[in-house]
Design a protein around this nucleic acid. Structure first.
Lengths: 131, 131
DNA sequence: TTGACATTACGAACGCTTTCGTATAACATT
DNA sequence: AATGTTATACGAAAGCGTTCGTAATGTCAA
């Protein structure tokens, strides 16, 4: 059977940090801080604390060999995306991924023809879920 | 310009209640409780309190004319869905709805041809966002 | 070595969500 | 009217996420 990664759902602040780690690879707290500070306006020790917590939770790994610990994401971006999507789908789309996709597409500017096409393709998705 | 509904992001418990209100229409606390209790195992006064808070926040309206107040969703399902999707997209998909859709479709069983088709259609979406 | 600086560790506070116990009020039944 | 039932209102506690101040520790240059 397929391997099943299981990890806690990252919080919003944790997700911001994960995004930096995914984009920049293994980084010190300072590096992450420098990326986030202009945006979030948050202090250095806050980022530090969050990253320590992420390490405790298993969301991040760290290399302690040098004084400035080097953190890296312990979970794949795509896995988190999948978790969050599943979460959203089950809490706000009645468990149907199809509905989520359709909802997005309908709010976009696609022609009726294109939409019909997509509907057809989507028939595969969502095994038993209602349309 | 288009009307712009603005409301706070519903919490998880609030979303569970909203789902009941959307599905069943205007309901008393007891009705909502009866729907959720088997699933969430939570007490009556908890649901009551939550629904009162939702009323305060403007997420729900209530008719107090009869002793048992009748609550109804003050926001449309599709509006909440849009809010949550935008939230997810900006926090976990680099702001690109296209990436979200593609991610879902790739995890589904669609043929390469179909995927190519969808990619083509998606070119419209996501004005400037990178693919 | 000593002082300045950077880094980690720790603890605490604050806000928000979720939960429930208890009090109070309205209603129904006898 | 008295009693039991059902509703709302209120307050408080517990849990989690986020934030930061401060202490402790390591590093490096003068």
């Amino acid at each position: 059977m397929a391997k099943k990664r299981t990890f806690p759902k990252p919080s919003e602040a944790e997700l911001r940090i994960l995004n930096v780690l995914w984009r920049h690879g293994p980084s010190t707290v300072r590096k992450v801080f420098e990326q986030l500070e202009p945006v979030t306006q948050v202090g250095y020790t806050t980022i530090l604390k969050l990253m320590q917590i992420m390490h405790d939770k298993g969301l991040a790994e760290r290399d302690e060999r040098s004084r400035s610990h080097v953190y890296s994401a312990a979970i794949a971006c795509v896995d988190v995306q999948e978790l969050l999507v599943d979460d959203l789908v089950s809490s706000a789309f009645g468990g149907s991924k199809k509905r989520l996709v359709l909802q997005i597409l309908e709010n976009a500017d696609a022609t009726p023809d294109e939409l019909a096409e997509i509907r057809h393709i989507l028939r595969n998705i969502d095994g038993g879920a209602k349309s």
